[in-house]
Design a protein around this nucleic acid. Sequence first.
DNA 1: ATCCCGAGGG
DNA 2: CCCTCTGGAT
Length: 214
Amino acid sequence: MLSKANFLKILDIIAEMFPRAHGELRSDTPFQMLIAVILSAQATDKGVNKATPALFAKYPDSKSLALADISDVESLIKTIGLYHSKAKNIIRTAEMLETDFGGELPHDKDLLQKLPGVGRKTANVVLGDAFGIPGIAVDTHVERVSKRLQLVKQSATVTEVEDKLMKVVPESEWVVTHHRLIFFGRYHCTARSPKCTLCPVLPYCKFGEKLSIQ
DNA sequence: ATCCCGAGGG
DNA sequence: CCCTCTGGAT
């Protein structure tokens, strides 16, 4: 298992690789960010950004989306995938924001998770990116990278990954570290054919060490 | 554990 | 063709 000192060293290297890591979902308001993040489940940010301009042009806020026709929303987000459940979830989320939350997003993880389609990961992303509230969202990239670097055991759950990262990284760095790990996973330590031979982190990585031998 | 589900990359 | 994508609900 990787030591804390070595992991912080790796984070420094990754920070140099991606000095401008940031959320890549487009949105003009916290509400739109919430919807975009819900839509991003098992989908690429690029794919979400392709669909949301038309969606937000027609339904810019919770008041309008709450009254939307589901088949219309489905057709607007169809290219993203998982569109039946996502259409239902974002309309219901808009309704609940209107009826139960006074039209405002709650700045609270547990309350956000009461909204359909919003789980731990989505709540963390929205709190961090929309409100600057510290948190580490563990998505497919963060999980894969953390396991390859042996920050956690291979069998670790997403919650265990999240807890470990929060323990090792100072709270003031949680949100930016999250984005750096995403960028590292999305553009460099990719799921398929990771760029190990070009990787500045290779000296610290058992996973890449194994790959680079052959 | 399984389902949802289209687009893009290799 | 097969794999992956800022997962969540059942």
